[in-house]
């Protein structure tokens, strides 16, 4: 299924359009069910070329958005559980300050409540950045909607790595970047170099922003320590 979309000419493009039956989550069966979720996630994580090669490019964007929010919310919840556990451990070692612990946990609950909205909004921002990057590096042959679908599935599936304690967030971020590259290549039919540039360059520019975010989290965590 890993076809070279940029080398096969017009006939290949038309043929591929006909082959896009959708990932399991988008099909009639198993569709938007638990089985569909598992099959789609497994396919996205381990055979992303196949998954993005069959992902639908047209029609309603509800399935990818729901997929992202569903897995993202669960992933956020698990990540918050790990953070709470880490705070509790730190508190038990260093002598607990119940007030700061309760405050940190209440922020955690708030984060979980707003997680679906934040995830959705971040997906829109990330989509805009990657699509603009594609345009800057030679063009995005397909509409913005296709980039949104790629981002939803790539980031959605990557939230699974939040199950890993401590470094889950980092693994998820790297995995999401790699999957986004594969997704842009397969869905937009652009050369791999352009897909890599569209994803990596914003990351490089945003490293400072990421450093700020990291510092914010560390500061917030230190602030909650007794």
């Amino acid at each position: 299924m890993n076809m070279e979309p940029h080398d096969d000419g017009d006939a290949g493009v038309e043929k591929r359009e006909g082959l896009r039956v959708g990932v399991p989550w988008e099909r009639t069966a198993p569709g938007m069910s638990f089985a569909g979720l598992v099959q789609t996630t497994r396919m996205l994580l381990f055979t992303p070329s196949d998954a993005f090669g069959m992902m639908r490019l047209k029609g309603t964007t509800a399935p990818p958005l729901i997929y992202l929010v569903a897995i993202g919310t669960v992933g956020t919840f698990v990540g918050l559980l790990w953070q709470t556990w880490a705070r509790a451990m730190a508190g038990s070692i260093g002598g607990g300050n119940l007030q700061s612990l309760a405050l940190a946990n209440s922020y955690g609950v708030m984060s979980f409540v707003v997680a679906p909205f934040v995830i959705l909004l971040l997906a829109v921002v990330v989509t805009g950045v990657h699509h603009l990057s594609l345009l800057m590096f030679g063009g995005a042959p397909r509409p913005l909607e296709v980039t949104l679908r790629v981002v939803c599935y790539a980031w959605g599936a990557s939230y699974v790595w939040m199950l890993i304690p401590v470094c889950g967030g980092l693994v998820a971020t790297v995995w999401a970047a790699v999957m986004t590259i594969v997704g842009l290549q397969e869905a937009h039919g652009v050369p791999r170099g352009r897909a890599v540039a569209a994803v990596v360059v914003p990351y490089l520019i945003g490293i400072c922003g990421a450093m700020v975010l990291w510092a914010v989290m560390v500061t917030a965590m230190i602030g909650t320590l007794p």
Binding site: E14, T60, T61, A62, L121, V124, G139, P141, P143, E145
Partner: peptide, 26 residues
């Protein structure tokens, strides 16, 4: 390949609604 692609595509209602939601949230 590019000859078969549109030179531009219109944004869909979902994208416009999502962008609006981002701005409102901001």
């Amino acid at each position: 390949m590019r000859s078969r692609q549109a030179a531009s595509d219109r944004l869909g209602s979902t994208e416009i609604a999502l962008v609006g939601a981002v701005v409102l949230a901001g």
